[in-house]
């Protein structure tokens, strides 16, 4: 119920055409990883707090809020198959109708899976709340 906290590195974002799909997200993660590698920049350390209300992102160094994403804007989450330390989600932009895939690098494959399963559990709990509230 309370936020579960994870410490990850932000790889980046890319636009996607659909709110979900294994191949779509795999292709998006591939693009993000390639861009991050090409830039050669140090990745931003971020803290991710996951709850049935959504995902809150903070900059780990400054504790500054990056984004508070409502669960209703998140369509999909995955632990990537090719890049197995990568966790990613697809979210509808706050500003317009576009869909964005955001990817994060975890220290271990198990951690990418744990974040994905935690977000999936948040989806389920949010759905239970929603059904009750209806």
């Amino acid at each position: 119920q309370e936020g579960m906290v994870f410490h990850l590195k932000y790889l980046g974002v890319t636009m996607v055409e659909q709110p979900k799909g294994e191949e779509l997200s795999a292709a998006a993660v591939k693009r993000i990883v390639a861009t991050a590698k090409a830039s050669g920049k140090k990745l931003q350390k971020v803290t991710l707090s996951v709850s049935p209300r959504g995902i809150i992102l903070y900059d780990s160094a400054s504790n500054q809020l990056i984004e508070n994403i409502s669960i209703y804007r998140i369509s999909y989450c995955t632990a990537d198959k090719m890049h197995d330390k990568v966790f990613a989600y697809i979210v509808q932009s706050q500003h317009n109708e576009t869909l964005e895939c955001h990817a994060f690098l975890c220290s271990k494959r198990k951690m990418a899976q744990a974040v994905t399963l935690t977000v999936a559990q948040a989806f389920r709990v949010a759905f239970e709340y929603w059904q009750t509230a209806k």
Binding site: S25, I71, Y72, C77, Q92, T116, V119, A126, W130
Partner: peptide
């Protein structure tokens, strides 16, 4: 390969407003 994990959000684009 079956070890990919991915989940759709059942409340995506739903709201409690209506």
């Amino acid at each position: 390969n079956t070890n990919t994990i991915h989940f759709d959000n059942p409340v995506y684009q739903k709201t409690t407003e209506d």
